[in-house]
């Protein structure tokens, strides 16, 4: 058994030491389906967008209807028409601000995922001893079965490190 161990040490370890510095390639183009955090974030943003639309749309539609009716019923009452138009404009501005808060929250969450991707890349690099991790966009050809392809492992690490990201919207002013 000692001979076997010695043989393994003699053959295997030098091969690790002498191996050329490896380069890994990752393809993050499908991250919205492979990252559980990003897939969840996408669903959250979609739900929030629908909720925001639902929050303001009925009131805006009602006011537009009222404005149409006011124009027909009291064409000379400019004050009433202006008051309704101002209410519509205020509501639209509120809806726009809500969408901006959502966009900001989305941006913050994406930033968190990007930091997690960088951390997962660092973990991948240290666990494989790779010299560098290239994004697929930095390459012009990668053999289909290249051992350098490490996308799946990167997603495993990313999903372990950040299974979910919160969409934290700042409170409305």
């Amino acid at each position: 058994m000692r001979t076997l161990r010695a043989t393994l040490l003699a053959f295997v370890l030098p091969s690790v030491a002498l191996a050329a510095p490896p380069i890994l390639v990752v393809d993050l183009s499908d991250s919205y389906t492979h990252s559980t955090a990003l897939a969840g974030l996408l669903a959250d943003v979609d739900r929030e967008l629908k909720a925001l639309a639902q929050m303001h749309r009925p009131a805006i539609d009602r006011l537009r209807r009222e404005l149409r009716e006011a124009k027909q019923r009291e064409p000379d009452n400019r004050e009433l028409q202006l008051a309704i138009a101002r209410s519509i404009s205020d509501l639209e501005a509120t809806a726009e601000r809500d969408e901006e808060r959502l966009a900001k929250a989305n941006e913050t969450a994406i930033g968190e995922v990007q930091r997690a991707i960088a951390a997962a890349k660092a973990t991948l690099q240290s666990e494989t001893g790779a010299r560098a991790i290239l994004d697929i966009h930095e390459t012009y050809y990668v053999r289909q079965d290249c051992p350098c392809l490490a996308t799946e492992r990167l997603y495993e690490l990313l999903n372990q490190q950040l299974p979910k990201v919160e969409l934290r919207m700042a409170p409305a002013e």
């Binding site: 076997l4 043989t7 393994l8 053959f11 091969s15 380069i23 001893g129 350098c148």
Partner: peptide, 23 residues
């Protein structure tokens, strides 16, 4: 193991794929 090439195969299994062969 040496004769049958098994050692090389084992070495390949034990190494992370990126280290298994230079690109």
């Amino acid at each position: 193991l040496l004769r049958s090439g098994m050692l090389a195969a084992l070495a390949g299994l034990w190494l992370p794929p990126a280290l298994a062969s230079p690109l």
